[in-house]
């Protein structure tokens, strides 16, 4: 879906106004620190994937998404997932139904990470150097193809192998698709004045089509 989060190329947001690197705290309020830890800890229960988590933040009214601060969107997403997955009622019924990590488990999980590379079971359709078009899509669910590259032509610069396909992963189906990195010329995306700039975007095979 192209909700409030799909920001690439949008205008009207003003300047970046970065805090100086040496002065910026890691969290700007105690509640940010708390919600950060809660989102990671509940994620470790294994009841949703990172893409379900992203989608829970994205499927808000775009006005709300943009009005909220970053960690407020994390809170909104977590509240939604807890409700939809009914975690409180489930643990009330069966106290043993989740493996709840302690400190040692949490450290182990953070260190292990969650790689998305899967064994290659199929041949990639495309290879480096191929000129391809990004398909236009207007789908309601989670996707990782930004609107600003849809319909644009780009060149494959890398094949990263088969990775978990986010569009399906967000609905609880863990399946793989070939992942490529494509280069798009600035002039292709933004017009002829955008010379000597390009954008590299990672795109899964179902997002791509041959140029007809």
């Amino acid at each position: 879906m192209n909700g409030g989060h799909d920001l690439g190329g949008r205008q009207g947001f003003g300047t970046v106004n970065a805090e100086p690197e040496s002065e910026e705290p890691l969290f700007h309020a105690e509640w940010e620190r708390r919600i950060f830890a809660l989102v990671l800890a509940t994620g470790m229960l294994g009841q949703w994937s990172i893409d379900e988590s992203r989608h829970a933040r994205e499927r808000q009214n775009p006005a709300d998404y943009l009005r909220h601060s970053y960690y407020e969107n994390w809170l909104v997403g977590l509240e939604k997932l807890l409700e939809e997955k009914d975690l409180v009622a489930r643990i009330e019924q069966d106290a043993q139904c989740f493996r709840v990590p302690d400190a040692a488990d949490a450290r182990k999980i953070l260190r292990k990470g969650d790689p998305t590379l899967l064994p290659d079971s199929t041949q990639p359709r495309f290879r480096s150097g191929d000129r391809l078009r990004v398909a236009k899509r207007q789908q309601a669910g989670h996707t990782r193809v930004p609107t600003y590259v849809q319909g644009a032509n780009g060149t494959v610069v890398n094949h990263y192998g088969t990775h978990i396909y986010p569009d399906q992963n967000a609905t609880g189906q863990r399946a793989g698709a070939h992942l490529y990195c494509l280069r798009f010329e600035g002039s292709e995306l933004w017009g002829s004045e955008s010379f000597s700039q390009s954008v590299y975007v990672d795109l899964w095979e179902p997002y791509l089509e041959e140029i007809r």
Partner: peptide, 24 residues
């Protein structure tokens, strides 16, 4: 809201305080 959520999750046993501390 964050406080209420944290209290609920701790009380129900869906998260453990020492895990939250380790993450932070």
């Amino acid at each position: 809201r964050v406080k209420a959520l944290e209290s609920l999750l701790l009380e129900k046993g869906l998260v453990k305080q020492d895990a939250l501390n380790a993450i932070i």
